[in-house]
Design a protein around this nucleic acid. Structure first.
Lengths: 244, 244
DNA sequence: CTAACATCAAAACGAACGTTTGAACTACAT
DNA sequence: ATGTAGTTCAAACGTTCGTTTTGATGTTAG
């Protein structure tokens, strides 16, 4: 009555297949028939369980994003509790926000790199229902982290922080999308990785390497000198730690 | 005279309309009928002039990208000539690559922000024909700039530079896409801008502000401290330190 | 004038799309 | 066994897609 376990099998299989196909082909280019036949379920199953193709895409994200943003909020709670009123280091804030996401790429049970790539590619889709869905899913966590960054960087104009948060999200989004539109850029990347740690699957290794490289880049961008009109703000970014 | 009058404005009108509609709705969600009726041309005109919808998209990009990447190569040529063998500053390289692009956003005759947004959104599209098209268009210029960065940063491992070039492209791509998936992030952005220079159209102002903010961020990310491969304090699951 | 190109309206093409329908099947409480 | 609610199924629905065709009209250059 309350929770049908007969439901779970078909539902989950659809969600898993949809996640992969949306990632491979994009939302518009993925047909219901491709999804249902790959999931080995009836064509009508998606509309029965989710209502529509749009609702399916939202559910694909919801089952992972709710958990993710919950983790992010908990991580920030923990940081603020530890700080006990003292300012939190920007590197810790970035780690809580981006590290929590990137660690999903190492765990296939959380969607792994498939979900990360899908997320990165979908964040730039212009469809209205996607934009409003993401806006709702992210509203709380973005607001909390924005305020945390304001407090961590009191000498930086708030508008500047917002811009840089935008840029950081972009760098991450594009990096996890990994569309490799310019294969020239990545080129040596994969071969470079394959040489080492071959115990884990390539996606897990990639996720770890990505985090190692991306976090310092983001922090460097966040603490870059401000554009001309505010020169004296440079001193607020003392090398207070070697965490990077 | 020349034949540019024979190939009258039908071609250009299709390209202009397609550029805007592809930007607004994405490639898959934009129909030929929407394009031709908005351009007030016959439905068959696209297939007559370009051959197919795919070829139309490629032509939309080609008419701007060949010029852009030409400018980029010339800018790098000029830098290298001025340096006369001496190392070029990374900031100059970034200015030549990203500044040349961002300046297109201020010039409506070069596509303006419409083209920039379209470019940012299309760079993450998974469709195969798009990926191979961009790979061909960008191969030369990426290779030149990659080598320039290698020379400008001789102490940084080449693989690291490639990663950071990737991140910089991502930050720029997402920033110019401006999909605002998380409106919370931008929020004050537009209102902030509207206060000042209201003499130009909003898109031109936005492009200028974007460049002012993005370039320092990219440079800060590029020059961030390198990751330390054994700094794992909170997570210890990689005992091997054989990383190069 | 002629020939080649460009544009048009209209219609049609087959294919693929998201969605709906109504019957058949399953599980389980009574 | 029977009723009921939830699930699956094959088949069809109506629409829209990219593309092609036909034939007529306008434009331009040799």
């Amino acid at each position: 009555m309350s929770d049908q376990k007969t439901t779970s099998d078909t539902r989950e299989r659809i969600l898993d297949v949809a996640e992969r196909l949306f990632m491979d082909n994009g939302y518009e280019a993925t047909s219901m028939r491709a999804i249902t036949s790959a999931a080995e379920v009836n064509l009508a199953a998606v509309n029965y369980h989710f209502g529509s193709k749009e609702a399916l895409l939202c559910e694909v994200f919801r089952r992972r994003l709710t958990w993710l943003n919950d983790q992010r909020l908990q991580a920030l709670d923990k940081l603020e509790a530890q700080a006990a009123g003292a300012p939190i280091k920007p590197s810790q804030i970035l780690e809580a926000f981006f590290g929590t996401l990137l660690r999903m790429g190492e765990d296939p049970s959380l969607g792994g790199m498939t979900f990360l790539r899908l997320l990165g590619r979908t964040l730039t889709e212009p469809a209205e229902f996607i934009r409003t869905f993401f806006a709702g899913e992210y509203a709380q966590v973005i607001d909390r982290y924005k305020r945390a960054l304001f407090r961590a960087l009191p000498d930086v104009p708030k508008a500047e922080i917002v811009w840089r948060l935008h840029f950081m999200l972009g760098a991450m989004s594009y990096a996890i999308a990994g569309t490799d539109v310019l294969q020239v850029v990545t080129g040596c990347e994969v071969g470079d990785l394959a040489g080492e740690a071959s115990c884990d699957d390539p996606d897990t290794v990639l996720a770890r390497r990505l985090a190692e490289r991306l976090m310092p880049f983001l922090l460097g961008g966040l603490r870059a000198p401000l554009p001309q009109f505010h020169e004296e703000a440079n001193k607020q970014q003392e090398p207070s730690s070697k965490t990077v």
